[in-house]
Computed example of a mutant assay.
Amino acid sequence: MTRLSNASLTQLDAKVATPNYDRTAVSAGIVHFGVGGFHRAHQAMYLDELMNQGKALDWGIVGVGVMPGDRRMQEALASQDHLYTVVLKHPDGNYEPRVVGSIIDYRFAPDSPDAVIELMADPAIRIVSLTVTEGGYNFHPVTGEFNLENADVQHDLANPGEAKTSFGLITEALARRRERGVAPFTVMSCDNVEGNGNVAHKMFTAYARARDAELAAWIEAEVPFPNSMVDRITPVTTPTDIEELSSRFGVEDAWPVVCEP
């Protein structure tokens, strides 16, 4: 059995596809909040495909977690050089594994909120994307309006440099880019929410308006919030999935992704 890492890629079973590009040449262009199964089987996988074609090497992904449970993902990815396996389960029972290398780092925001903010303030970051589920947009279930009473939101409004939420972290990064004359990044929702870009736009600008009306007006005018349609069935990874990858292909992966073709 081979533990997944940069050093072990050449030792893996020939049936396991691996990155053919130099991962040390990949630089960050995207910061992604909510690194779960869908993101790793979709956006990260497609970037890996482009990198295998010698393209998009300046679009590497830095994952960010803000919830307590995200610590586990940070630890799993860090233990294997941020590599992981996507396993396609075909209807005929065939398994098709590939190692994805487009995620180059992962930050657990509570460890250092300012470092995450500065990462997004870097001009090299052109997209900040999100898969945070419908609940991550903090809107009232009845009115559909942004919930300013949320305790973490109140904390972030009072302490923008020590933000706890995606709203506080991303808005503070945009504020710093504005102050430094750096063009804003695109905020790209990849959640299964109708009009996801519209929802993200409404919630982020509501947060910004509560913080600073001028900043909110700049975000309204300058920051793109595209809508997207996304779908891929990615069941929660089970101990059986981890064992199957190990027994069939000899790959020890702390958190692989299994999905439909």
Rank of each mutant, 00 (worst) to 15 (best):
R71V: 15
R71I: 14
R72M: 13
M73L: 07
M73C: 09
Q74P: 04
Q74G: 12
A76D: 08
Q80R: 06
D81H: 02
L83P: 02
Y84V: 07
Y84Q: 04
V87T: 11
K89P: 04
P91Q: 01
N94D: 14
P97I: 05
V100I: 13
V100N: 03
G101L: 00
G101S: 00
G101K: 00
D105W: 03
Y106L: 12
D114L: 15
A115I: 08
A115H: 04
I117N: 07
A121I: 00
P123F: 06
A124Q: 12
R126K: 09
T133F: 06
Y137V: 05
N138C: 05
F139P: 14
H140Y: 10
P141E: 06
V142Y: 07
G144D: 12
G144H: 14
F146I: 05
F146S: 03
N150Q: 05
A151N: 14
V153R: 11
L157R: 04
N159S: 11
P160R: 09
P160N: 10
E162N: 12
E162K: 15
A163T: 08
G168A: 08
G168W: 02
A175G: 10
R176S: 08
R178W: 08
E179N: 13
E179L: 12
R180Y: 09
V182N: 08
A183C: 03
A183E: 11
S189Q: 01
C190E: 01
V193F: 12
E194H: 10
G197W: 02
G197P: 04
N198L: 09
V199P: 12
A200Q: 03
H201S: 11
M203Y: 04
M203E: 06
F204P: 00
T205N: 11
A206N: 02
A206V: 00
A208S: 13
A210W: 11
R211L: 10
D212L: 02
D212C: 06
E214M: 03
A217T: 05
A217V: 03
